[in-house]
Amino acid sequence: MNAAPADQIRLLDVQALDQRLSQLAHRRKSLPEHAEIESLTADLAQLRDLLVASTTEESDTAREQTKAEQDVDQVRQRAARDQQRLDSGAVTSPKDLESLQREITSLAKRQGDLEDVVLEVMERRESAQERVAELTDRVAAVQAKVDDATARRDAATQELDTEAASVTKEREVVAGSVPADLLKLYDKLRVQQGGVGAARLYQRRCEGCRLELNITEINDVKAASPDTVLRCENCRRILVRTADSGL
């Protein structure tokens, strides 16, 4: 393949722009905010799970407290009715009086036991409420950090995307001035060779593979026409001659 020396040198400009685009893409992918957001999001998910569990516990203890208080009320009302019967003098049989007094005593003990249950449930509910409040604050704090990191990531991404768009337009202009067949070969090699399809020959060294040409290769390069599109014998990239090639 043949191409004017100026076209071959422009190919190095295309290569430089492609490398810049690759660097921008790598920076975009490697923004520290990505890892920060991932870590914070994992923490947030765990805290939300804990919050759901604590909220469920608080709800369960609230129902348990209501049930225990209702049990106390039922015993208290029954005891009040029995006491009213006792005080009214309606019960005159000694046996019935004794039975009624035993029941009032039993109900008093039952009420005391149930009130202890209510207190124990209230303590557990208060503890659950405190836990819910604590986790709610922690979720809000971590969410704020996620929002901040997301905003920083989006700003950095926007800046990189803007620069990439500018470089892409410049690449289109420069690539448009390179012969189509030469550009096609370059693009093919760039895919095959890890993003570098053309390399400068600098001081007898290929800047693609960083290997110095041997004397035979140097003589072949010297003998080649300036229009000949050369390939590095080692890495097979397009080898572009410049004033600094050391020939």
Results as ranks from 00 to 15, higher is better:
153 R>W: 06
116 D>Q: 12
81 R>H: 15
73 D>W: 15
122 M>N: 04
47 L>D: 01
25 A>D: 07
47 L>R: 03
43 D>F: 00
109 K>S: 12
56 T>F: 12
95 K>Y: 04
120 E>T: 14
55 T>L: 09
223 A>M: 09
100 L>W: 01
124 R>V: 00
3 A>I: 00
186 Y>R: 04
146 V>C: 06
245 S>K: 02
239 L>T: 01
103 E>K: 15
200 R>Q: 15
182 L>R: 00
115 E>Y: 09
179 P>I: 06
57 E>F: 00
14 V>Q: 02
207 E>R: 10
132 V>L: 10
222 K>N: 13
141 A>Y: 05
51 L>Q: 13
74 Q>L: 14
218 I>M: 04
242 T>G: 10
181 D>H: 11
54 S>K: 10
192 Q>A: 07
64 E>D: 15
34 H>K: 09
30 S>D: 13
106 S>W: 12
223 A>Q: 01
122 M>C: 07
76 R>M: 08
66 T>C: 14
174 V>Q: 11
107 L>A: 06
93 S>F: 02
67 K>A: 15
198 A>T: 00
245 S>V: 03
221 V>T: 12
227 D>S: 12
181 D>K: 13
237 R>C: 09
12 L>A: 05
103 E>H: 12
70 Q>N: 13
228 T>I: 06
8 Q>S: 05
26 H>I: 14
220 D>V: 02
46 Q>Y: 02
81 R>C: 13
113 D>L: 14
93 S>P: 03
225 S>N: 08
239 L>D: 02
23 Q>A: 12
18 D>G: 14
142 V>R: 00
106 S>K: 15
90 A>C: 11
59 S>V: 14
181 D>Q: 10
193 Q>H: 11
6 A>M: 13
123 E>C: 08
215 I>E: 13
54 S>H: 06
227 D>V: 10
217 E>N: 01
43 D>V: 01
157 T>Q: 14
174 V>F: 03
169 K>A: 09
31 L>G: 01
35 A>T: 06
199 A>L: 00
232 C>A: 05
191 V>M: 12
74 Q>N: 15
82 D>W: 09
1 M>V: 07
195 G>C: 11
118 V>Y: 02
97 L>D: 03
111 Q>I: 15
109 K>V: 15
4 A>W: 01
141 A>L: 13
53 A>Y: 05
172 E>K: 06
242 T>L: 07
240 V>D: 05
145 K>V: 08
99 S>G: 10
112 G>P: 07
211 L>K: 07
207 E>M: 11
78 R>T: 11
210 R>W: 11
108 A>D: 05
121 V>F: 02
233 E>I: 03
50 L>H: 09
193 Q>D: 13
1 M>L: 15
17 L>M: 09
22 S>P: 09
33 E>D: 11
37 I>V: 13
30 S>Y: 08
157 T>A: 07
223 A>L: 03
78 R>L: 05
123 E>D: 12
90 A>Y: 07
173 V>C: 04
166 S>V: 10
79 A>R: 12
44 L>H: 04
193 Q>W: 02
98 E>W: 05
201 L>R: 02
11 L>N: 00
221 V>R: 01
172 E>D: 08
226 P>N: 08
184 K>I: 11
52 V>H: 11
28 R>I: 04
42 A>D: 08
87 D>N: 11
228 T>N: 08
48 R>Y: 00
